[in-house]
Write a protein that binds this DNA or RNA. Structure first.
Lengths: 150, 150
DNA sequence: GACAACTGTAACCGGCGCGATTACATATCA
DNA sequence: TGATATGTAATCGCGCCGGTTACAGTTGTC
């Protein structure tokens, strides 16, 4: 599950790359948009590169570019690329095996967690990077009431 | 999302209570089965009590008892009782508002996360504590091969 | 070739979350 | 009254993770 911000950073980065179609984007530029350190960006981009989602050019004039169509990138793919897929951290220790519950609880918990996690990933899979970009570019909640009240 | 072991502990505790129908179970006893400190158990039990899932009796002869039918307790209820429902930790800082992505990314991320999280909870809701108990008590993968090989 | 502009990574720091533990107040039954 | 419990505050220790620095390697430009 993991509630780190790597996933958020990854989506942010990919959205920027999807919007700026031509040319590479440097980690400094991405870091400015995300508002963090360039090295943090490079770490995430490295992971995305290993997953085949982006390509990186080194040297002067280099940077990261999206190397697949935004319509073909499901958010579950991004999630799996960036989250290490932990083996469910529940029950840090070995439960009491003399107890009928302790003897089997781990297997049951793992199954429960697996099915819920799969549902989580399936929900992510229903959206693509292209949809994220579309959400980003459509008018941000047009003001309806008076322009005075907050 | 939160990958703490509180949820695992809660399921374990509730399963023990569901199995031992009569009488209260002390935190010492639960701690032995879970293999942790009684205070850790009491913290989780307190949360479950506030959620109306268990009742606690203080004093000698006291302990925790399930105060609802296991068939009526969905695992999503347990999850929500025990996990504080964080407001999605993505994007720790304010993104650059001059960037079209940074301006709206938080709203989009929150919506994405909300829908995926809802799918997660819905998957948990499909199982009850009674089913967990049934999984726990049914024969644990009957040995099929020779009784010699591990 | 020299230099500037980038990426890739290792190393380290600091803060936060959380489970474990101790300690103690309180409640209840015999 | 004393043994047995819960309830909870306080503290400790450790692991995770984002941030930062540092530096090696790569590439375009003059």
């Amino acid at each position: 599950m993991a509630s780190s911000c790597r996933f958020a950073f990854a989506i942010h980065i990919l959205a920027v790359l999807a919007l700026k179609r031509e040319g590479g984007v440097t980690s400094d530029c991405l870091a400015a948009s995300v508002n963090t350190n360039p090295v943090v960006i490079r770490r995430v981009v490295s992971t995305l590169r290993r997953a085949g989602l982006v390509c990186c050019a080194q040297g002067a004039g280099g940077g990261a570019t999206l190397c697949r169509a935004p319509e073909s990138i499901g958010l579950d793919e991004v999630y799996r690329a960036v989250e290490p897929l932990t083996a469910f951290s529940g029950h840090p220790h070995q439960p009491d095996l003399r107890c009928p519950v302790g003897r089997q609880i781990k297997v049951v918990l793992e199954e429960i967690h697996a099915s819920a996690h799969q549902a989580f990933a399936a929900a992510l899979a229903e959206r693509t990077l292209a949809e994220v970009v579309a959400m980003l570019t459509e008018s941000p909640r047009p003001p309806r009431r008076s322009r005075k009240a907050a």
